[in-house]
Amino acid sequence: AEDTGVRVELAEEDDGKKASIALKLWVEDHKKLKGKYKESGAIEFSFDLEKDVPEVVAQEMVESGFFHESDVKTVGKSIRDRVALIKWRRARTVSAAA
């Protein structure tokens, strides 16, 4: 995944079955953000792998005051990359088991 300066990781073990998974997002490189980023902590949230859309969650984070509108694409892409990796690993585990 491209280094966007925003890190997204699993906030819990992925058993490969649950639809919603807890993710944790934080900024590793403030310089890569266009807007001023005031929150220095990690933001934990639940993501439904079937229903949720990364860019929508990113917009919710902007609306919740965590990021500036100009960074919604960067945040969305960071979430999308991590979700894609989770789905890829799940698919690989299933095919290995088959």
Partner: peptide, 27 residues
Amino acid sequence: SPSAQVVHSAGRRFIVSPVPEDRLKEQ
């Protein structure tokens, strides 16, 4: 410190907590 929480109007909860210790050293 108690983690802050923000609930978006769409219902998603965002919980803010310190960045994981081991990741701070990497910055």
